[in-house]
Design a protein around this nucleic acid. Structure first.
Length: 238
DNA sequence: CAAAGTGACAGACTTACATCA
DNA sequence: GTTGATGTAAGTCTGTCACTT
């Protein structure tokens, strides 16, 4: 990954044990390690000393809070029985009186996450762990950020697609209006200059009446190469 | 080899908090 | 100071996949 030194100025000191889940012993992505799951069912407290250039981030109960003064701080991860990494927060919250505090990522953290997202929209466990270490976050937090980021990307794309379809619909509506007018004009012309009565046929799909021959009942309309006409394509519906 | 069980993950949806006008 | 809108971190549920038994 190219996310080499975005936080390289940080001084980080950690004391404690990482979760066995955050130490994948198998290189294979998406390969669970059941033995490690059973081996340790607890996580010891982690002590982290982080030094950031502008502000200090403190991890308390899974949340990261900004301190107004640039002092080095110690983040405490309360211990708790875990089965999976995503159970962390509920266990950590036992220590915090207030249930759920909003984490705000620093600009540097967001920038680095964005940079990584440009390269990979998903992360394998090693990448996730490395990035989390670099950002002084838990890998779960990195994982959540990528999940939400993917969701936002998809939502944005859906909105773009929606706009595109709206424009397409407007164009087709206009074209439909124009063609209806053309039909009316042709009908009027037909009344002015009576011709042998054309065979009237009902389109099986839209049940509108059309003029035409035995082969193509709607071929009386001049072919318009610019637009696709279902009437000129017998196999197509209206 | 097939089927059932299990764990990890991603996506969708939701909730809750922070920020701003 | 209050309020509603918005952004977003995080929780929950569900489906899928890979692997094991």
């Amino acid at each position: 990954m190219g996310s080499d030194d975005a936080c390289s100025t940080d001084l980080v000191l950690r004391l404690g044990f990482s979760s066995p889940l955050e130490t994948p012993s198998k290189p294979n992505y998406q390969t669970p390690q059941k033995s490690s799951m059973a081996a340790t069912s607890f996580e010891l407290p982690s002590l982290t000393l982080g030094l950031h250039s502008k502000e200090i981030d403190v991890n308390i109960g899974g949340g990261l809070y900004r301190q107004p003064s640039p002092h080095s701080v110690v983040s405490l991860f309360s211990s708790g029985g875990i089965k999976r990494e995503r159970d962390f927060s509920s266990e950590e919250d036992e220590d915090s009186v207030n249930a759920r505090k909003k984490l705000r990522l620093t600009k540097q953290q967001s920038a680095l996450l964005e940079e990584c997202f440009k390269q990979h929209t998903t992360l394998n466990p090693k990448q996730k762990q490395a990035l989390a270490k670099q950002l002084n976050l838990r890998s779960r937090q990195v994982e959540v950020w990528f999940q939400n980021r993917r969701a936002r990307t998809k939502l944005k794309q859906t909105e773009v697609d929606c706009e595109l379809l709206k424009k397409c619909c407007e164009t087709l509506t206009d074209e439909n209006r124009r063609l209806q007018k053309e039909v009316q004009e042709l009908k009027a012309l037909n009344l002015a200059q009576p011709m042998p009565p054309p065979t009237l046929t009902i389109c099986p799909s839209c049940e509108r009446i059309g003029h035409g021959t035995s082969k193509n009942p709607f071929s009386v309309l001049p072919p318009n190469p610019r637009f696709y006409s279902p009437f000129t394509d017998p196999s197509a519906a209206c």
